[in-house]
Amino acid sequence: MARSLAEIRFYTPKTLEEALAIRAAERSDAMPMAGGTDVMVWRRAAPDEGPAAYLSLWGLRELKQITKRQSCIEIGATATFAQLARSPLLRENFPALVEAARHVGAAQIQNRATIGGNVVNGSPAGDSLPVLAVAPAMVVLTSKGRGTRRVPFGAFYTGYRQTVLEDDELLVSFELPLPPPGTWSGFEKVGSRRAQTISKVMAALQARLDGDTLHGVALAYGSVAPTVIRLPRTEALLEGCSPSERLADDVSGTLNQEIAPIDDLRSTAAYRRFAAVGLLRRLLRRCAAAQGRAAA
């Protein structure tokens, strides 16, 4: 039974232009809210610390599109995970993102949770983050005063839940470069149960299969460091190798040097290290199977 003392203002702009104007005027006084699946949880958990106003992005149709451009797929910031999971464009080009989308919460959450919210929230357990890291995505930010800027996904986070987003900016879209032919991508997650669960560890792998060897390997992990991370040294070891489950164990030493998991409520550092290798094993096994199919 919610009854607030001072009424909280709630903006529901219908266009991006309107939204940016409100954002510029209100700055940090108005918290953007897309699907609200994070914001509404904070509102309940810390009712005394909420913002003075909310700025709803849910009604901005222009931010909901998934479109193919010349050399990239553009995903609007307020596209929901349900949309992502069903998108033929993504199924074809970024199957890993479809897999990640299907792993977010359950039906009710997928119908509301947006990819932009997932990224701005910036939890290292955000399921879409490793996929965006390996794509690698370009993050498109816009403000009323300064126009649009593009930030490489790898530069978007500056620390634990810290981003480069300014308080007059909104995240409007992601641009995922179209992968070259022969590219394989996959996502794996381990949580505390099979659905509606926050990741203990998750990983995304994207690579081009040339014959039976991996090229342009991109590997990212979530929940093993303060932010989502790419693993450049492990990627280098995988480069040119033929995918196999053994390979995961071969590179596990380097992998474990590159991640820095901790003990927390959901898991232990030791387990996260173990599962991180296990997830790579799964990814390489799947990749090898796909390569086998392609070869056959």
């Binding site: 529901t12 809210m33 609200g36 699946t37 509404m40 709803s56 849910w58 009710q108 119908n111």
Partner: peptide, 19 residues
């Protein structure tokens, strides 16, 4: 708290009425 919102199932506890 699941309800159908425009034919999709959502959790009514996470939806601000303004939306």
């Amino acid at each position: 708290c699941s309800v159908l919102l425009d034919g999709q199932v959502v959790n009514a506890c996470l939806i601000p009425v303004a939306q």
